[in-house]
Design a protein around this nucleic acid. Structure first.
Lengths: 199, 199
DNA sequence: TACAGTAGTGAACATTCGTTCTGTCGTGGG
DNA sequence: CCCACGACAGAACGAATGTTCACTACTGTA
């Protein structure tokens, strides 16, 4: 090969990712050409072939439409400590890549996202408005953060042992420890957390 | 109205969600008709109008293609309090895998994931080992959490104004406020956060 | 310097797409 | 009972789509 230009394709890929984030769909060849400044759709077609070959796109199983591939959702991962060269070097740093969903969700069929209400766990760094990743299971251990069902309501607390009985311990001194009289119904265990800051 | 049937539309919506989970795209009217058993595309068009009116679909800002709306990805657990039926009712089909990434990343080409080292922001609920979502930009405002470059190292702090000058304020009383003598180089602004709890 | 591989051009083509219109059928309210 | 309304059928239409092919421009290598 003589004139392959990976940088240019990386730039094109960035624009396609931005388009997808905004429109939640892959543009048509016509619009790809407009976005990239091509004058012909064939160039867009070849670009997609290249990116598909690199794993960023696939064909839909149903029809032949383009669909984001695995690597399309990869995000660059920058290390804070190791800062050697110019700051812009870090972008392409070491090819370290990060899949958000894969990082957080390991068993999709058993995983639920639950928005957090209230600040009873604020000392554990779980704020009102955060979204916790919950794996549905009854098997929780003391020390786990769990979503339990108390008085027909969901509540997020730490599962703790107190004199051989399970209790729900908030991480906020303003809240009391919950000592269920009957049995304690566990909805799931918190396995992750997601927070979005205002724009 | 005389023959509106919300149940039937709910079933249709379920099939559309399944299709989207598999193909990561919304089918054409033609294929919708096949999926639902319609004999005409017009029926599919009207179905989409109904579902769009209910908030499950939208038109893409760019062209007029159909695009999943807000409620399309809505997880059946949004309301923690309202717990009516059996807990297994809450289970959902798949299709959730992309929610997190979509929730956090809005401008993919400018977004970097940065692991957090240290506990200088612990009072803001940002712990050691968390991963922050950083939008690369120099344009930060006071009050933003920023990743700045100080002494050739990354540091995560709140950007604050002190007597008309920008300073970096930790959220941990054990750390001092950083008052850069020269100018302050901003790497990016924190727009989100991801945390994973040990399994 | 000559060559080979790649990115992009420009036009033609059949196919598929979404839209629109008229019409049929069943149901629920007056 | 009748009538209005909503779901769906069915066909027609222009616009947009993806594919293909021959061609040009550029660039690094032998």
């Amino acid at each position: 090969m003589s004139a392959a230009n990976p940088e240019r394709d990386a730039d094109y890929l960035g624009r396609l990712r931005d388009y997808y984030a905004e429109n939640r769909r892959i543009p048509s060849f016509q619009r790809i050409a407009e976005l990239m400044g091509f004058a012909s759709k064939a160039a867009a077609s070849k670009l997609m072939d290249r990116l598909a070959h690199a794993g960023f796109f696939e064909r839909a199983p149903d029809d032949d439409a383009w669909v984001p591939g695995e690597r399309f959702f990869e995000r660059p991962l920058a290390e804070m400590a190791v800062r050697a060269g110019a700051p812009d070097m870090i972008e392409a740093s070491q090819g370290q890549l990060f899949l958000v969903d894969r990082y957080l969700v390991r068993q999709p069929s058993r995983t639920v996202m639950v928005p957090v209400k209230g600040d009873s766990m604020i000392d554990a760094g779980i704020h009102d408005g955060d979204i916790v990743v919950v794996v549905r299971t009854k098997a929780a251990n003391a020390g786990d953060f769990v979503v339990a069902i108390v008085d027909n309501e969901f509540t997020l607390k730490e599962l703790a042992l107190e004199r051989g009985k399970f209790v729900l311990k908030p991480h906020n001194p303003a809240y009391p420890i919950i000592r269920p009289q009957g049995e304690l119904e566990i909805f799931g265990v918190v396995s992750g957390l997601v927070r979005r800051y205002r724009d």
